[in-house]
Amino acid sequence: MTSRPRFATDVNYANGTAALALFGVLAWTFVNADFLPPLGFGEGEVTRSIGFAMFDMLELIPDGHGETEGFLVAFIVIAVVLDAALDGAVMLARREGEDESLVTALADGGRRLTTRERDGLDDSGPAADSGPDPAADSWEGED
């Protein structure tokens, strides 16, 4: 069985109309809202000021860029969270059992061998597109 992409056939279009209705309401509200012209940032590089704000160097930010607080603590916290997320992802992806190597986290899970392939009778590679192979159900493994 190949795994080429196909059009989704299990799409629930009836639920999707709720999202379209939501967009209608939101767009109608926003188009009819009254906004003043935006103040903007005036002179000075915005990107540079973002860097200064992120590392608590507020005195270097030009006056035209408004009152900005420092974000150094948030920066450190996010760095820790990203590190924890990386560890969590590796922990989740690691296969329990005999093989604890990191390689299993990078593999795609593979596909079940047919009975013929497992016995070494069929070395022609993946079968042509013939739908689910009934012989694959005879695979005996831990579940």
């Binding site: 935006p38 903007g40 940032f41 005036g42 408004g66 900005t68 948030a74 920066f75 996010i78 997320a85």
Partner: peptide
Amino acid sequence: FYYGNLTGQVFTLFTMALAA
């Protein structure tokens, strides 16, 4: 941009990191 205040832009960067 509307209020001329950088806080929203810095906060966006943190949101992107959280999304990652």
